[in-house]
Design a protein around this nucleic acid. Structure first.
Lengths: 341, 341
DNA sequence: TGAATGTTTGAATACGTATTCATGGTAAGG
DNA sequence: CCTTACCATGAATACGTATTCAAACATTCA
């Protein structure tokens, strides 16, 4: 069994500095009054001996681990690392570590265990379906949680998402205003609030424009590149195919573009395609995707901020914010300025 | 300050079961002899009261946290989540949690801190440059480490990578055997051993074929999609452009394909393109990239296995394994079977 | 049967820190 | 000068578990 011994403890520091262990602890925590001269002396010894407090002992006393959990449903979905990147930056800025669970392959047992063992101070849930043993467990134990890109009606906890419905509505309006009339939707699983809200926004826009959405212009599937790709092929190869396909998110749109390419159908000449999220890859030439950008950095910042507040102050009210989105017009739709909206 | 109290401790269990706390601990750890009847009684009480041992107290005693750190250089690089996925699965299978650091934006301070605080039992380094304060700190403290996709000569620690040189050599042979004669290389930073080894393999193949590599057919840059894209454009727009571009990895190849598309150059009609890694996206229709697949799952499995061994048995020798690669021929090169190799 | 060995258990202790309680000292206020 | 309040500090304790030590008991062997 490999263990590497801790060389020093606060008693050693106390002895060297000629104070009591309690005083060393007070200097470290910075919460109590210590005479400036004493503080300097202790700090000097800490520095000299290169002392680090034992994190486990601290955690046991304070019941705080300095670690935040992040629950992710499909880590290889390209939007996930972008979210993790921003979360990691924010957490680091707050001096917290980030432990990650990927539930689509690992399952949720690890998360539930961590919650029950109290080894995390808070938990971030990223977009995923509603049914979640981990979420139920978190709510039951009362551990502070925050959801990013996932909305649950009536939930008494922090929730940060973009204006999915309004953004999708804007997207529909743009397509209609640009002359599209046979607009199709390809979407993912609707138990994800983001996707459901976006679909609602699109449908609303189509309905208000008097266009509507025939069944043959609608398709959905659970997450799998090949499935979306296949749906796109079937969609485009039917009689009187759509002249635009609005997708629930960028990753779905990527698969759709792949399907259309396989079917030999030109974009945007024969059909337009739009995504939603505005992830980095959407700007690559091979996609050049018109999409609706959500401010992931701001959302991550708010998520972490609220979580930290809940941890430091249990009275803090849960927050719920919707972030604005930005239409980015690229090559998968006609490249013309949007003056008529 | 939010804290949620631990309801029960092992003393409560002991009292309810009519045994001592030591016996409860023995039942939990499973290392000592306990009479079967006693064990069942204790387990029943644990079950009944829904007791969970306090992880911090355990960690303080055993000096083991049940957490493994993973250091990543650019988490949004699509190969990284694939690595993390496999690592997470393996770690979960071993009952370990995974904490992730993304050093390109966070820096390494968090990792170094975690090492000094002993809050992780082991550390995985994924491909990155050689200079690393975290690696130095890890080696100094003696915490078990393992490197995946990163090789350091003479290092006394676990290292798992694929046969980068041989794989690249095979790739060069394939291009030459297929009739390519003006073969270019676009690569990333050479302080990454994977990229350096692959370049060496390619150069070796070209040299043995008597083709060589003129300066004008070589370009490199640090990691940034736009830079690789630009390099590809400049490469292809020069007089007597290459008839093939071999890239250091798939992500570079994606950028190259984007550049070629922007330049209006047909692939594979006017120029072939190859990658290396075989990440999932390389199979998407928009890339359809010929590449060299490395067995990430096996590599991750070996990485975690070795790390766990080092943690459980400090005498365990560091391991160093090279994994074989597999040429995957797709649409960015002529779609013909490779019989002549 | 007696000695030797092995099994099962409890009491006590240690891990390293944060915090409470008590004490001596110092400043403020009349 | 006396009281009151506050500041700085140390001794002692608690957090919850793993482990050592010793004792009680059971088993084996001659």
């Amino acid at each position: 069994m490999h263990t590497y011994s801790q060389k020093l403890n606060s008693n050693d520091i106390a002895r060297h500095a000629g104070v009591s262990q309690a005083t060393v602890s007070r200097v470290l925590s910075g919460n109590s009054n210590v005479r400036e001269e004493t503080r300097q002396r202790v700090l000097a010894v800490i520095e000299e001996l290169n002392y680090q407090p034992n994190a486990f002992a601290q955690a046991m006393k304070t019941r705080l681990s300095g670690t935040i959990g992040v629950v992710v449903s499909r880590i290889t979905n390209p939007i996930v690392p972008e979210v993790l990147l921003h979360l990691a930056d924010e957490l680091t800025a707050h001096g917290k570590r980030m432990v990650v669970w990927n539930t689509d392959t690992e399952g949720e047992a690890g998360v539930v265990n961590a919650i029950r063992q109290r080894v995390i101070d808070g938990l971030v849930f990223t977009a995923a379906g509603q049914q979640s043993a981990a979420m139920a467990s978190a709510l039951q134990t009362g551990i502070p949680i925050a959801c990013i890109n996932r909305h649950i009606e009536g939930g008494e906890f922090n929730q940060f998402a973009c204006s999915n419905l309004e953004g999708a509505r804007t997207m529909a309006d743009y397509l209609v205003a640009s002359g599209r009339r046979r607009i199709a939707i390809i979407n993912g699983p609707l138990d994800r609030s983001t996707l459901a809200d976006r679909e609602a926004g699109l449908r609303q826009g189509l309905q208000d424009a008097g266009i509507g959405l025939p069944d043959k212009y609608y398709a959905a599937s659970d997450f799998a590149h090949d499935k979306f790709r296949q749906l796109a092929i079937e969609m485009i190869e039917q009689p009187s195919p759509p002249d635009a396909i609005a997708c629930g998110n960028d990753v779905i749109a990527f698969a759709v573009l792949c399907g259309l390419r396989a079917a030999g159908v030109g974009v945007p000449d024969e059909v337009w395609v739009t995504g939603f999220d505005g992830i980095e890859m959407s700007g690559w030439d091979v996609f050049n995707l018109t999409t609706m950008r959500q401010p992931l950095d701001a959302m991550a910042s708010a998520t972490v901020g609220a979580l930290i507040d809940n941890i430091e102050n249990s009275e803090a009210e849960p927050r719920m914010v919707r972030f604005g989105t930005e239409l980015i017009i690229r090559g998968t739709t006609a490249n013309m300025p949007l003056t008529q909206l």
